[in-house]
Design a protein around this nucleic acid. Structure first.
Lengths: 308, 308
DNA sequence: TTCTATTGTTGTCCTGGACATAAAATCCCA
DNA sequence: TGGGATTTTATGTCCAGGACAACAATAGAA
């Protein structure tokens, strides 16, 4: 623990900052589920134990990947950790572990130049695609876990994301000019803030010679349609984080599919797509980054290059 | 405006994120002062206009430098801005304006490497002390103003602070090894989070040959005493941001003065010290960074170097 | 003048209710 | 039996208004 929360009791404001769960949610859970049930000080105000806060962090982390509070609030911290572990079967390589350790240390000491240097080096060493699959993916998990253990503050996690985006963008721009086929439009729907996934997809595809046109996150549906037509893209790819409401995603995709020219392929990727049951005609779900390359190969074999 | 809040109405959550004023405070002000008085949607929930949010941001900014809400809530946005302007009489130089412009642009585009580069260059060009006085001070204000206008998000402001600390730390470490006199202990009291002021003081003094020992922010009183004695420092310097409660600062300083050996000098600096009326025996108030150097010279003339 | 007690300000927390919206379960139709 | 629409359940956010602690300002005492 870096936070000096050892035997200490936290008030509701501190718990809100620490866990990211709003005061309203904390009180609501107490009312509805009976957990957490903090003690009260002389003044009748809630005093949360470090133990409870630890469990709250673990719950938050699982909820961020789609689990619902009612399902997990009865479990012990050990059980929660077991669920989290079960969701990430692959053990990272020893090399990745080294990097993880270094990166976490640099985040804790706010050594941003060191962090940039490490990330840039690692891209060089592994190449962009392997970097995304073998380094970033476990690293993201490690950073999330560190937060859960109280080893990183919210802001430090934010710093990490930011630096990672910088590194990826630099590496993507360093790639030889992308003017190949297919042309692909990359973005997210409005309300989806998570731009990192977008960059990761781009990093996977640019080395394959794909001509990526990224609009950044939060593009209104109508603008996506217009941009797709203006750029004459072959594929429109949308990214969805786990937190995005399934219903909104499905509706948005269906609308977009209806409004896009039929010959344009529509891809949907990101954590959220693992939770989608329905098969949606004309929409390709890509729940795993590693599959993007397969999906691309498949697209290429089915689309004979057109003479310009 | 970068935020797409033009004709839009914001709900209370969005205003909280945007202004940094908690929902409770927003409701309380409405109850007590009658401002803001947002409209209601079909569901009876508050809907704030962009105009009101602008005034709220301006108020928040003034409160962060010590004004009280009751005094300013009746003023118009123009009057609030006039007060803010009046507090910073010096106009920055044309050079500083250029840098401001560049830095803001880079913050908006999240160009961290560019930002680091610019800051590092500027340190080289001006030297550490002038950098602190002529660049950082107006830059801090420019960043704060940009936030107030809605041109920067909270997170981008945070990013700025972080990068600035990185740049300062690098420049300080690059200075020739500090082993001179006086030896000075630098820190802040617990509950004071603001570490930037500390670094700025250090940056002012290291080029003067002061041997700075920084404990970072938030050191418990007893630890300050112990560290001061262990390192046999000549001066203990504490930094206080404007937001720090005056009473706590005064009490903390008095206690520390009592517990420190009499021959040790105690300095208190930072925005807060401008609001302190009381003269405190044995404690030197330094409300302006530029005065640190004077204070140092004065200390040196009054303390004949001791043979070791 | 400086210290201390009092008074006014201001923010945070509390309870408990209402309700919108997402997810899950159910139903219905081909 | 699968897909789509509809109902039910789960969950989060908002609201009102009260209480009170912490802080600042002011008045009074030494």
């Amino acid at each position: 623990m870096r936070n000096d929360t050892q035997g200490l009791l936290l008030n509701i404001s501190a718990v809100e900052k620490d866990t990211g769960l709003s005061k309203d949610v904390l009180r609501m859970w107490e009312r509805r589920y009976g957990f957490p049930r903090p003690g009260r000080d002389d003044n009748g105000e809630r005093q949360y134990s470090a133990t409870d806060v630890g469990k709250l962090r673990a719950m938050k982390r699982l909820m961020d990947v789609g689990l619902r509070p009612g399902k997990i609030i009865g479990l012990t911290l050990t059980e929660l950790n077991a669920i989290a572990d079960a969701r990430t079967p692959a053990r990272p390589s020893p090399l990745a572990l080294d990097i993880e350790h270094d990166v976490l240390a640099m985040l804790r000491s706010h050594d941003l130049p060191g962090l940039q240097h490490t990330l840039a080096n690692q891209v060089m060493r592994q190449g962009l695609q392997r970097f995304v699959l073998d380094t970033i993916t476990p690293l993201n998990r490690a950073v999330g876990d560190a937060w859960m253990r109280g080893d990183l503050q919210v802001f430090e996690e934010h710093l990490y994301t930011e630096q990672l985006q910088v590194a990826l963008r630099a590496a993507i721009n360093a790639s030889p000019r992308q003017s190949g086929t297919p042309r692909m439009l990359l973005t997210t729907l409005p309300a989806e803030l998570h731009g990192l996934g977008l960059l990761m997809v781009e990093a996977m595809l640019v080395p394959e010679g794909v001509h990526c046109i990224s609009l950044g996150p939060q593009t209104p549906l109508e603008d996506i349609r217009r941009a797709a037509i203006a750029h004459q893209v072959h594929i429109v790819a949308l990214s969805f984080s786990a937190a995005f409401p399934v219903r909104q995603a499905v509706d948005g995709l269906a609308t977009l599919r209806r409004e896009l020219p039929a010959q344009m392929t529509l891809w949907a990727g990101g954590e959220l797509t693992r939770r989608v049951r329905k098969t949606m005609p004309g929409i390709m779900l890509i729940p795993d980054l590693a599959w993007t390359v397969n999906a691309l190969h498949s697209w290429r074999t089915h689309h004979v290059p057109q003479p310009v």
